[in-house]
Structure formats: structure tokens, C-alpha cells
Design a protein around this nucleic acid. Structure first.
Lengths: 198, 198, 198, 198
DNA sequence: CATGAATGAGCGTTCATTCAT
DNA sequence: AATGAATGAACGCTCATTCAT
């Protein structure tokens, strides 16, 4: 009965923590945070609730852990953006890279979008808000008119919507994402040109 | 003991139902649907939980009632839009009027936006989805390119964002709303022109 | 708008009390006492719960009233039986008449049978027990062997069973009742003969 | 802190599930199913309501569990009976053994008898009905006259009555049971003889 | 590394009942 | 003769969390 036996069960040794995260993300995204109980997560994994508490101190910590690992790219993007000159090219590149970051952690972002009320009261709420502010500061020119500021903000929104909300437009996901990216780049470009017009 | 006596208690006779709706909307918008308990609503009103059940069959019914009464203008807008020719002017007018509808029921729309995961599982979820689809069908030209379809969809999003999400842009609410409306109209216009270019 | 107008509503004037009893009996028999709520009774009648309280002091009183009016024949039967000589013919006649009494208030007796646990804690519980004891004293000879006493008791049971429990035996209700009556008479007769054998 | 310490608390380790069943049966039989609340059961055990839910999914499941474990002998009896020839001796033996089965789970059977209305709506209702049908099919000859079929059915009833209903006949329980058994055997015998008379 | 057993707080809901009108 | 509005108590159930083993 060595623990290294590669039976279906034993093979999983040590990655329980990751499996918890996987299942939790799936369920959080599907049903929301409050409607997903630890019992449900545990059952789907074939372990007991208490096992979850070996790996995480609270339910919220599971979410924090998911958030931190999955939004690393977004954080790096902001850091990168901060060091760039505020040129049009930078802004366009930010938009393109943010689109990538979104796609890379789609379930989490979907969750964040659909559970805003919940997230607001959680530790990650403020963190996320700051990230969005960081992004905004890069692509929004503070001297621009309010209208152009809105355009830039909307650009970010469009990317989110392209991933999660525009199913009614038909076409497949990739097509919609591509179009959304185009619109987003367009908005940022337009805002930039307005601001730097002679 | 005339019913017009303005005693703190007697004055309230008969309007309990409306007071429940008021308090519920306030709390739903503030904390979310699941985190708002009937106990909380009742306590804030100075009645017992059971009293709520005299006026509404379930917790969900309170929300349904709020939804139905507060989205009437949106419904009427869609009906009006359907009867109009699909001209640019109509689309612009829809956007303007939708902005009005949003402003008139801001707390509810904020609630809908921040509790999407919850709403999706509730009766009003599907209804709301259909409404949004209805709006989309009016301002989105089905023959347009995907990019222009996204532009129209984004226009609607921008209005929502103008009300709830753009606080970081500074300025006051009215300023942001005006700018958002401008961007929205612009997006719809651009999409329309693309589609009807020679 | 005279109250004597024979509109569907107005015609019922004054017999609401009886209509409550009718509906209550139907529901009590169908679903049991505890599972039948006053709300349900009121709704089915198209009145409010409070109206029930105009006619009856408590839920239990509705049942008491049903019981008292529907078991009058049983009471009279016992009074009659007490005045008769304890002959075989009397006993047989008691069985026959009890069969009639049962048939005349079948829903109530079904209710009593299926809700014994509940009835035991209600006011009518003791009353009913005394009635059964009264019946027993007439058809059971106190000097008889225990076996013969059981036979007589079983005779009564058989009648109940004939009305409510023997559906699995096939045939129609009348056929089963006739057979049950025959068996009951038979049991009483056998008990009597045993006791009076030389 | 050895688990064999006979402290009032420690001794109980691991048998909570059984203690729940014991207390539940006692209360269900005494007061009925609906009038017995989980709070009551928990309090009597010195645990919280939630503890019950660790061991059973629902209140109904407690009853199902009681039913299944306590009616095993009845089930085995039916299986045995089905494999026997349909002789008089078999039928008599079934009656005797059923008497034993009843005595072995008296509180449960008393509960089933006194809560028929409730049981009918529960999962065990149909199961129990099928069991009774199974028993009936063994001791009731389908070709017999309705009267003889009723006799056989009555035989089973008599056994039930002997355990629960015949307290008014005086004597002690054992005496009544013996007499009831005698009457039951007699009824079955009589039915069999009628059917197989030349 | 994980389980078994349990808790305390709370939830949405239902009920019989009351009472001023 | 009946309603509208409300209550207090209870119910079955679920949850995140704890802790000895």
C-alpha cells in the first residue's frame, strides 16, 4: 500500500490543493460564490469538508488564492504599462495584452463580473478595483475630455463583454472577441487622436 | 383614531407593501440579494418576518415585483422602438431614452449588474435577458459586420457603465452620464454609417 | 345589491359554516389533520382565514363539530343497543347497523383511522375511545374467553377494513362491504355460540 | 482519554446514529411524525439539530432508516412464504411468524398504524403497501370467494389489533396476543377449508 | 493528509391565532 | 358576516467553521 502506487487515487497525492482550486473556480463561475457551498466542492472532489480546511483557512481564502494566481498576468501587464511612454502604440498594446489576460483567466473574470456585489465585500474587491484603476491610468489621459476618458474606459468594458456578454450577437466566441478587440483599439485610438489633435 | 392622524404608526397604514419594496431595493442594491435576509428587511421596517409573507409569497416575489414595476419604462421603450423605422435617428433616440430609463431605476439596474450570477437563476433573469435582446434587435443591424454589431452593443454597455462603474474617472455623476451618452450615440452612429456607406 | 339576490355568491348566505365543514372534512380525510392548513380551507372556499374564526374558535373546533354531527348515528346506535337484551340477534343487528353508520360517515371514519396519532391528542380522541368501548360492551360478553372477546372486537375491525383497507382484494366497494359484513356477523355469532354452548 | 473510559459523554462515541434512531422511534410512536420535531429529538439527545443532519439527510430519512432496518424480518417472511406451497400449513405458519415480526418491531408498527395519513405521503408508504400486498398474496387464495378473502385479510388485521388496539379487553398483552393469534389462525383455516371443500 | 463528528448561527417559510375595522 | 394586517413561535434545513484523532 505504498503511497507512490499510481492507482487512480494515490497518483493525486499532493495536488489536492490545486484540485480544490480547479473545482472551486468551476463552481464559483457557474453558480456564484454564495450559492457554492464547501460541501459541494468537497463532494465533487471525493474528500470531506474538513480536508478543505487543511489547505485553506476559510472559504474566502480559496477565492483569494484563485484570484492571486490567475490575475498575475494582469498585474504584470500594469507594471509593464507603467514603464512605457504614454504613446498611442502603448495604449493599443495594453488593450491587446489585456484581451490576452482576460482570455487566459476567463472563468475568473466571468466570476468577478457576475458576482460584483459579493466581491465588493470580500478582500479581493478592493484589490481588483485598484488593478482596474491602474489600467485606466495607463490608457486614460487625465487631460482628455470626459468623453474621451469614457471612450477609453469603454474600451476595457468591450473586451469583457466580448468574452461574456455578447452571445446574442451570434458568431462564435473567437469572432466576437476579434471584433471586440477591434472596437476597443478603435476607441482608444480615437480618444488619443482627439486629445492630441492640433 | 382617524386614519389621517399623523402618528408615526397610524400614518403608515396600508403602505406597508410599498415600504417593503423600498427597503428591499435599498438593501438588495447595497449588499446583494443573498446577503440580504428577510429578517433584516423586517427589522428595518419594525415588523416581523411573517408580515412580509402577508404581502409577498416568497423572497423572490419581492424582487420580481420590484423588477416588474421598475422596468416598465424599459419595456415601453422596446415596444416603441419596434414600431419605428430602423433609421439612424431612431437608434439614437433609443439610446437617449434608454439612458433615461436607466437613470429612473438606477438602484435596480445597479442590482441587476452586480448580482448577475444570482439573477441568472431567478425568474427575472430570463425576462431581463429577453429585454436586452429586444433592445439589441432594434439598434443592431443584422446585416452589419460583427465589428459594427459590437459597437452597438457596446453603446448600451457604456450607458450602464456611465451610471455605475466610472466613478474613478472623477467629475460628478451627471458629467459622466452626459459623456457616456455622447459616446454611446457616437458608437451607434458610426455603426450605422459603416453599414449604409455606398 | 340586496343580500337575497340569488347570485352565485349571495345564495350561499348563512351556510358558510356548513361549507367550511364540508371542505374541512374533505381535506382532513385526504391529507390528514396536520397537513391541512386553515389557509388551504379558506382559499378553497374563497374566504379569508379570519372568516373561519368567525364560525369556529379554533382549528380543533372544526374537527369537533364534524365529529359530533357525523357520529350522532353511532351514539344513537349505542344507546339503542344498551336497552336491548344481550341476545345473539341484538349483537348481529348492532353489527349491521354499525356497518350502516360507518357508510354514512365514511370520510370521517377514514380520517379517524388514518390519523389516530393526531386524534389521540385531541379532544375527540377520548370521546371516540369511549364510543368504541360502548360498542364493545354490547357485543362482547364479559364472561367469554379472551379468544371470543377478540373475535367480537375483530368483527368491528373488519367492518372498518371493508370500507377503507381492502382495496387490494379487487371487486367493488359494495362487494367488499357485503363480504366484510358477512364475516363480521359470522365472528360475532361464533363468539356467542362458544359462550353459550352447554 | 481512552475511548473505553465510561464517562457519560465519551462512552457514546460513534453510536450517535443509533441513539438518534432510538429516540426518534420512541417519539414518532408516542406523538406521531409531524408533531415530533427535530429540535425535540436533538434536545433529548443533548446534541444540536445540525448534528442530526450529519447522520441523516432529512427527517424523512430517519424514518426510512427505521423502517428499513425494522421491517427486514417482515420482508424475509414474505420471501420465505413465496417459496412455500400454498398449503394450509404454510398459511398458518405465515400468520404465526407475522405475529412474531410484529412483536419484534411493535413501536414501528404502532407508528405505521397510527400515522397512516402521514405515511401515505412518504416514501415508505408505497413500500409498506407492497409488503402488505405480498403477505396477502400468500395467504389469500385468489379463487376464493370474496368472503373468504376478507377472512384472510382480517386475520392479519387481528394480529395488529392484538398488539395495539385491544387494551380495553383487559388481560395482559401476552394473553391478548395469544388470543388474537388463535383467532387469526382460525380465520385462515376456515377460509382455506371453504375453498377446498369437495 | 485527512476524517468523523459536531456546533452555532442563521435562513426562508408556514402555522394557528388575534383584533381593529 | 367577514376582511386586512399582523404576530410569535416553530419548523426543516444549510452553512462555514472547529477540533480531536
Amino acid at each position: 500500500m505504498s503511497p507512490t502506487m499510481d492507482g487512480t487515487k494515490q497518483r493525486r497525492r499532493g495536488d489536492t490543493r490545486q484540485r480544490i482550486l480547479d473545482v472551486a473556480l468551476e463552481l464559483f463561475a457557474e453558480q456564484g460564490y454564495e450559492k457554492t457551498s464547501l460541501r459541494e466542492i468537497a463532494e465533487r472532489l471525493g474528500v470531506t469538508k474538513a480536508a478543505l480546511y487543511y489547505h485553506f483557512k476559510t472559504k474566502e481564502e480559496i477565492l483569494v488564492s484563485l484570484f492571486e494566481s490567475l490575475t498575475r498576468p494582469m498585474e504584470e501587464l500594469i507594471e509593464w504599462g507603467r514603464r512605457q511612454p504614454h504613446t498611442l502604440e502603448t495604449k493599443q498594446e495594453i488593450v491587446r495584452r489585456y484581451d490576452q489576460a482576460l482570455a487566459g483567466a476567463a472563468p475568473l473574470f466571468r466570476f468577478m463580473q457576475e458576482n460584483q456585489a459579493t466581491v465588493r465585500e470580500l478582500r479581493i474587491g478592493e484589490t481588483f478595483k485598484q488593478r482596474m484603476r491602474g489600467l485606466k491610468d495607463i490608457i486614460v489621459d487625465p487631460d482628455a475630455t470626459m468623453t474621451d476618458q469614457v471612450r477609453c474606459f469603454t474600451a476595457l468594458l468591450t473586451l469583457h463583454a466580448g468574452m461574456f456578454l455578447m452571445q446574442d450577437l451570434g458568431g462564435d466566441l473567437e469572432e466576437r472577441r476579434k471584433a471586440a478587440l477591434e472596437v476597443a483599439v478603435d476607441l482608444v485610438t480615437q480618444a488619443h487622436r482627439d486629445a492630441h489633435a492640433s
